[in-house]
Design a protein around this nucleic acid. Structure first.
Length: 484
RNA sequence: GGCCCCUUCGUCUAGUGGUUAGGACAUCAGGUUUUCAUCCUGACAACAGGAGUUCGAUUCUCCUAGGGGUCACCA
C-alpha cells in the first residue's frame, strides 16, 4: 500500500478563509491518521486576482492554526515547486499532450463570440455551454493559426456519449453524470496559464496525491477531472467531498454575511485550540459524546466514515462558548501567551488603520473603544446615534438603500472611491453630503466619535459596508430617534 | 431553469431495523456565589411528507416537498 498523501490547495486571491482551515484540518487529520503526508500547494493560476500578500497571509494563518504541512512552497519537498505559477511548462506540455492524443483541441473563439453564444442559449432557454465551434478545425490549420500568433485556448474534447461516474467516499456511493452535460472545459487559457481543472489534475498526479478531500462545491466539476485522468491514462485519487460551511440563511458561508477571514478570528482572540476543536465538530463527530478534544486526539482517531453529509451552519454562539471554555482553563503563563498572541494578531490585522487608532488612544483600555466595531458581527446600534442634522427618517432610509445599491454596483476599492460613492448618492437624492457622510459613519461604526470614514470603508471592503448599510436601514425602520 | 448533493431538537450532532430517540450550544426555571461570571440541577425542544420492504422502520427503497451547490479563459 502506497503512502497516503493529501493536500490543501488554496488560491491566494483574498483573505485567508475559515473554509480553507476547515478543509485543511480534515486533510491533515486524514493523512496523519494514516501516517501519511499533508501537502500545501498554492493555486495561483488566476493572474489577475492572485497576490503575494494573500499567499503569505494564508500560509501564516494556517500555521497559526496549527495546521502544518510536510511539503509546500515554504518548506519544499521532492515534488516541488509547490506554486502553480512556477509549473507553467508542465501544464502547457500536458495540454498539448492531450491535443496530440486527440483528447483536447485548440479553440480560437473570442470573448465576443462566446458572450453572444451564451446570450443566445439563455434566450432560447438552453443550458449555456460551448458549442464545439472549433472542434473540427484540422490540426494542421490549427497549428498554422497558433504559429501565426492568433490567440487560442485549449479545450477538453468531451465525448458526449455515455456517462462518467466516480465513487465518493463520504457518501459511500457512486455519483454519475451524463456526458452530454459536461462542457468542453477550457484547460489552458489565452495567457498560457492553466485553468483550475487542468492544473489540479496534473499536480495531484505529479504530487502523488492519493485522497482528495475538498468541499462539495466541487462535485459537479469532478466528472471533468475524471475525464482528464482518463485522457492522460492516470489513476484518479479517491474523492471525498466534505459538506460546506454555511451562513445562518443556509447559503454557502461568505464574507457578505459572516466574518470568514482567519485573520479576523485571530485578531478577535479566538484561540487555535478552540478553533480547531470547533471546526472539527463541523460535519464531523468523535465517537461517544465527546465534544472537547485536541487536534492530536482528532488525528489519532480520525475516521472518514464519521464525516456527515449534510452541510452545517457555522454557529458563532457555540464557538464563543468553546473559546471561553478554553480560556477558563488557561494558567497565568498560558494566558499571557494567549494575550500576547492576540495582541500581535490584532495589531497586524488593523495595521492599515493603526495610525488613526493611535492618535485617539490615551491608555490601553481605549483600544477596544476605537476598534471594537471591527469585531462585532452585527453592530448594536443605538437609536439616538441616528439623530443627524438635516436628515429625517424617510431621507435616511432612502439614502441607506441607495448607498447599498451603489456600493454593489460600482464596487469601490480605495478610500476616495467610497467618498465619491457617498457624495454621488447624496447629490442624486439632493440631500446634504455632510448628512450622508454622518449617516454612513453611524451605520458602519455605530458612533459619531470614530475613525476616519473612508479609510475604514476601504478597510472593511464593499461587501461588509453594504451589509452594515442594510442592517442600519433595517434598524432605523423601527428605531428612529424620538424628537425631543 | 438543467444537472448534482442534502434533509434527526432553533443550532452542532449521536444513532446503521426493535432506544423512554442520547449529548452539546442557545433559551427558560431553580440552586450555590456579597455582584457578575463560573459551577450544579431541572425544563423546553427533533426523526420534512407520502408510499413500499419488513413481525417491526429515524435507520433500507421509491416518490414528493424543501434547502444547498454548480452551470467562467475564478478557484
Amino acid at each position: 500500500m502506497s503512502e497516503v498523501r493529501t493536500r490543501i490547495a488554496p488560491s491566494p486571491t483574498g483573505a485567508p478563509h475559515i473554509g480553507t482551515a476547515y478543509i485543511a484540518l480534515h486533510n491533515l487529520a486524514f493523512a496523519k491518521n494514516k501516517g501519511g503526508k499533508f501537502i500545501l500547494r498554492i493555486e495561483d493560476t488566476d493572474q489577475v486576482r492572485s497576490t503575494k500578500a494573500s499567499e503569505e497571509q494564508i500560509l501564516d494563518s494556517l500555521k497559526w492554526m496549527g495546521l502544518e504541512w510536510d511539503e509546500g512552497p515554504d518548506v519544499g519537498g521532492e515534488f516541488g515547486p509547490y506554486r502553480q505559477s512556477e509549473r507553467l511548462d508542465l501544464y502547457k506540455e500536458s495540454a498539448f499532450e492531450l491535443v496530440e492524443k486527440g483528447k483536447a483541441y485548440p479553440c480560437f473563439c473570442n470573448k465576443e463570440r462566446l458572450d453572444a453564444l451564451r446570450a443566445e442559449q439563455m434566450a432560447n432557454k438552453q443550458n449555456p455551454g460551448y458549442d464545439g465551434f472549433c472542434r473540427d478545425i484540422k490540426p494542421e490549420e490549427a497549428k498554422e493559426r497558433m504559429a501565426k500568433g492568433e490567440a487560442y485556448v485549449i479545450r477538453l474534447l468531451v465525448n458526449k456519449e455515455g456517462e462518467t461516474k466516480f465513487f465518493d467516499a463520504v457518501r459511500n456511493q457512486d455519483i454519475s453524470f451524463n456526458n452530454a452535460e459536461v462542457d468542453d472545459q477550457v484547460l489552458l487559457k489565452t495567457d498560457g496559464f492553466p485553468t483550475y481543472h487542468l492544473a489540479n489534475v496534473v499536480d495531484d498526479h505529479a504530487m502523488k496525491i492519493t485522497h482528495v478531500l475538498r468541499g462539495e462545491e466541487w462535485i459537479s466539476s469532478t466528472p471533468k477531472h475524471v475525464m482528464l485522468y482518463e485522457a492522460f491514462g492516470w489513476k484518479a485519487p479517491e474523492f471525498m467531498h466534505l459538506p460546506l460551511l454555511r451562513n445562518t440563511d443556509k447559503s454557502k458561508i461568505s464574507k457578505r454575511k459572516n466574518p470568514t477571514s482567519l485573520t479576523w478570528f485571530m485578531a478577535n482572540g479566538y484561540c487555535k485550540a478552540s478553533l480547531q476543536n470547533f471546526l472539527a465538530l463541523m460535519g464531523y463527530s468523535m465517537s461517544g459524546d465527546r465534544e472537547i478534544f485536541s487536534l492530536t486526539e482528532l488525528i489519532k482517531e480520525y475516521d472518514p466514515s464519521r464525516i456527515s453529509t449534510s452541510a452545517p451552519i457555522f454557529d458563532f454562539t457555540k464557538l464563543d462558548r468553546f473559546n471561553s471554555q478554553y480560556i477558563m482553563e488557561f494558567s497565568q503563563d498560558e494566558f499571557a501567551d494567549y494575550q500576547a498572541e492576540a495582541d500581535r494578531c490584532l495589531i497586524e490585522y488593523i495595521k492599515a488603520l493603526l495610525p488613526h487608532v493611535l492618535q485617539r488612544i490615551k491608555s490601553r483600555s481605549d483600544l477596544d473603544y476605537w476598534t471594537g466595531f471591527l469585531f462585532e458581527r452585527e453592530l448594536a446600534y443605538e437609536s439616538n446615534s441616528f439623530r443627524i442634522k438635516k436628515l429625517n427618517q424617510e431621507q435616511a432610509q432612502k439614502l441607506l438603500k441607495a448607498l447599498a445599491k451603489e456600493m454593489g454596483r460600482s464596487r469601490p476599492v480605495k478610500a476616495d472611491d467610497y467618498k465619491e460613492v457617498i457624495a454621488k448618492v447624496a447629490s442624486d437624492l439632493e440631500l446634504p453630503a455632510a448628512s450622508a457622510f454622518m449617516l454612513s459613519r453611524i451605520s458602519l461604526m455605530k458612533r459619531k466619535d470614530s475613525l476616519p470614514l473612508a479609510e475604514v470603508m476601504e478597510f472593511l471592503g464593499a461587501d461588509i459596508c453594504t451589509k452594515r448599510l442594510k442592517e442600519a436601514g433595517a434598524f432605523i425602520k423601527g428605531n428612529w430617534p424620538q424628537s425631543k
